[in-house]
Simulated assay, not measured.
Amino acid sequence: MADLLPRSLPRRIGLLTGGGDCPGLNAVIRAFTRTARGRHGVVVVGIEDGFEGLLEGRMRELDYNEVAGLIGEGGTVLGTTNKGDPWHFPVTAADGTVEIHDVSARMLARLREAALDALVVVGGDGSMHIAQRFVALGVPVVGVPKTIDNDLSATDTTFGFDTAVSIVSEAIDRLTTTASSHHRVMVIEVMGRYAGWIALAGGMAGAADTILIPEVPFGWESVFRHVRQRALRGRRFSIVCVAEGTKLPDGGEVLRGIDRRRTDAKQLGGVGAVIARQIEEATGLETRVTVLGHLQRGGTPTAYDRLLATRFGVAAADAACRGDSGVMVALRGTDIVTVSIADAISTLRTVPPDHPWVHAARAVGTRFGDEPVPTGDAADRGDDARGADPAR
C-alpha cells in the first residue's frame, strides 16, 4: 500500500503512550523530546491518552519546559489508555451497550490533519500490534517497548520491569515480618498475565518459599506438602508469590471480569485468593492473601529504569528523525539497537522452564509447585524430594 504520510525526513513527529502506565514513561517522553528538538530540530507533538487521543485530536506541542524534571516522575504526562485500539474501538450506544467499531480510517485522517510526518508509539505488546497495523497502512512508525511484564520479544528487557520487581521484593520483605510474627502463610499475587517474570524475579529477590508462574504448571499437593514440611521443621510461616495469570492445576484461569472494550477482554485476578483458601483448607494453617495490583505500576522509576528509558527515548528520536519505520528500539546486551516491530510481536517473551533464574531459584530451595510428591515409605518418613528445607 502506498505511504499515507510523506516519506521525506520528518519535521513533525507525534508521540503517544499506550496501554497501562509504567514507571519510566515520563523519562522516555523527556529524552525523546529533548533529542528530537535539540539534535534534529524536529517539532514533537504529544498525543494525549494514547490512540484514543489521536482519534479525538487531543494533541499539543512539547517543549523543553514541559518535559523538564520528568525523569523521576511516575506515570505519563500525556495520559494513556488500554481501550483505544482503532480496529477494536469501544463506542457506548444510546441504550448503554458497548459496540465495537473500526475507526482506523478516522485515525489516519487525524494524522494527516495534524500534519504529522511520523508516529512514535511507546507501549507494550498490544500497542506494538496496533503500531504494526499502521505500518502496513503506510504510516512511518517507531516503537518503544514498555511493559512491566517484560514479555516483549526482541529486547532483553523493558523499562518498568526493574521498578516492578523492586516493589514486589520490598513488599515480600515487609510481609515476611508479619508472616513470621503471626506464623501465617502469606500469598502475594503480582502482575503477569501470560509471563511470570515479575513473580520469578520479585519472588527470588524477596526469598519467597514458593513461586507459581504461568509457564510452570503446579500441583496442589506439591504446594501443600512444602508448606506442611516447613511448619514441621520449625519454619512456622511460608511466603508464596504467584503471578496473576497462573493457571490452576485443572488448567482453569481465575478471572475477575470481562471487559469487551479491551482487545484482550479478560481481566485476570483472584488466583491468589483461590490458592490461599486451598492452602488453609488443606493444611489448617492460617493463610492470608495480598494483591499488589497497581502498586507495581505506580511511583518513581528506579535508577536503572530511568537510564534505560532515557536511552530508549534518545534512540527512538534518532530513528524517527532519520526516517526509519516499522522498527522498535531494543536492548541487546549493553547496546540499544533497532529491531523489526513484526519480530518483536511475533511471540510473547515468556519464562523458559529451564531459564537460569529458575535453576538458581531451585538451587536455593525455592519451590515451583511442580516437584514430585513422595509416596509410600518416603512419604511416611516425611522425606522431601531435595532434602531438608533450608532457612530463608
Rank of each mutant, 00 (worst) to 15 (best):
W87R: 00
P145Y: 04
A93T: 14
V144H: 02
P140D: 01
G143P: 13
M107T: 02
D102R: 03
L111D: 09
D149H: 09
V121G: 08
R133E: 15
D151L: 02
L119D: 10
V139E: 11
K146W: 04
S104N: 03
G123Y: 12
G96F: 01
V144L: 05
G143H: 05
L116K: 11
R112M: 09
L119H: 11
Q132C: 02
A105Q: 11
L137G: 08
I130N: 12
A94P: 00
S127H: 08
A131H: 09
D95S: 03
V103C: 03
A93Y: 02
A114F: 10
G96V: 03
D149G: 10
D151P: 09
E99L: 10
G138F: 07
F134V: 05
V98T: 15
M128N: 13
E113I: 02
A114G: 09
D149R: 01
Q132N: 15
G126N: 12
V142N: 13
E113D: 15
D156F: 14
A105C: 03
V120F: 10
F89Y: 15
F89T: 00
V121F: 10
D151Q: 03
A94Q: 13
E113A: 15
A93D: 15
V142T: 12
A93V: 06
P145R: 07
F89N: 00
